[in-house]
């Protein structure tokens, strides 16, 4: 079993503060370990969701590789678009909730954060570094084009994700 699993907070039961013979230093160590274990739990959960979204991307690439996959004349999904989407996903900071992967009829891949009514942000990726985005956030909305170099997600896009998922 991987060592990390043994640190999960559910497996770690804090010692009661009233326990006899436990020093203040022990309590501080205990507290640090407990916080670390809870943090690790979040990482494990995010990791699972991340693997799911990567699997979704593979599935979408496979299902949409022929033209007319949507029944309305869609273009085949570009393999380069799927690669760019994967790079984008890997470049996201760990605090970002995983998006939904949705194919687009022009051969692009959309990554969508849909947090409910008037709280949607989408990024559309093709083979080239210019990505398009659209944002609905309450009464405000925005759209535009940003540059993604394959490694670093532009701060403006992260801010939009933060706005809809906060």
């Amino acid at each position: 079993m991987p060592a990390t699993l043994s640190l999960r907070s559910s497996a770690y039961r804090p010692i009661s503060a009233s326990a006899v013979g436990v020093s203040d230093e022990s309590h501080r160590v205990e507290s640090v370990i407990h916080r670390a274990a809870k943090s690790l739990d979040r990482s494990v959960a995010l990791n699972g969701a991340f693997h799911e979204v990567i699997a979704d991307l593979s599935e979408v690439a496979e299902e949409c590789r022929e033209s007319d996959w949507d029944g309305y004349g869609a273009m085949p999904l570009q393999n380069e678009a799927a690669v760019k989407a994967e790079q984008f996903l890997y470049a996201l900071p760990t605090w970002v909730k995983t998006p939904e992967v949705v194919p687009e009829a022009d051969g692009s891949v959309a990554l969508i954060w849909d947090a409910g009514r008037r709280r949607i942000f989408s990024v559309s990726l093709q083979s080239d570094p210019r990505v398009t985005y659209a944002l609905l956030d309450g009464t405000s909305k925005a759209h535009g084009v940003e540059y993604f170099d394959g490694r670093s997600v532009p701060e403006s896009l992260l801010e939009s994700i933060r706005r809809v998922t906060r």
Partner: peptide, 22 residues
């Protein structure tokens, strides 16, 4: 992939369903 069900009984359609391309 053009629709999702975030919770039982509540569906959402995704924006690409409404993009006319190509």
């Amino acid at each position: 992939k053009y629709r999702s069900q975030p919770e039982p009984g509540r569906w959402r359609v995704k924006p690409p369903a409404f993009i006319p391309d190509p």
